[in-house]
Write a protein that binds this DNA or RNA. Sequence first.
DNA 1: CACCAGGCCCTAT
DNA 2: ATAGGGCATGGT
Length: 200
Amino acid sequence: MWCRRPKTIRQREEVIIGAILTQNTNWQNVNKAINNLKRAKKCSLEAVGELPLAKLEKLIQPSGFYKVKAKYLQGVAKYILESGGVGKMMEFNYNIYQHLPLPPPQLRRGKNARELRSELLTLKGVGPETADSILLYALDFPVFVIDEYTKRLVKTRKLARRSDYEYLRKLFEANLPKKFEIYQDLHALIVVEGKEQNKK
DNA sequence: CACCAGGCCCTAT
DNA sequence: ATAGGGCATGGT
């Protein structure tokens, strides 16, 4: 899983690829697809963007919905590379202050999470959850991800009256320290808990 | 055999 | 605004 925090650009790109492949698909199948990409040395945005569509489809086939996902991946890869790559997208988080605590937002350069989110949402195959997964798990932005497990948890524990995506995202964000590590870990725990419940 | 898995797009009301 | 069908594989 993506419990280990990505550090290198390559690892971050792998998380982005995984975010698309895992849509409505179990992780085992996604893992096979990712391993296929790795074995073919194509587990990067550049490779995914350049690969002939048919080749890409073949490699990611185990993840299911492989024809649409292959198109989605190429669109996302091309968009990110054209806009300067993962490093550029992280500039707001990680520019000239790498070794220091982050300065206040108004002093930072680069696009913030809200701007990146709306750009990601214009891409085919990137909805709210995928956009937020990319921001949180690949780019270390403090954006809480709402998935089916989270919605189910909120519902069964009666934590909120509404269950639409934006409402829940803001609810979690407003009630947690605004730190990406907290969001990553809590969301991961919700998923693990959800999987446990499924077994019973 | 049926059902499901960390969605999203498109179309029809 | 919201509902429903389509997309596809491997595990249980």
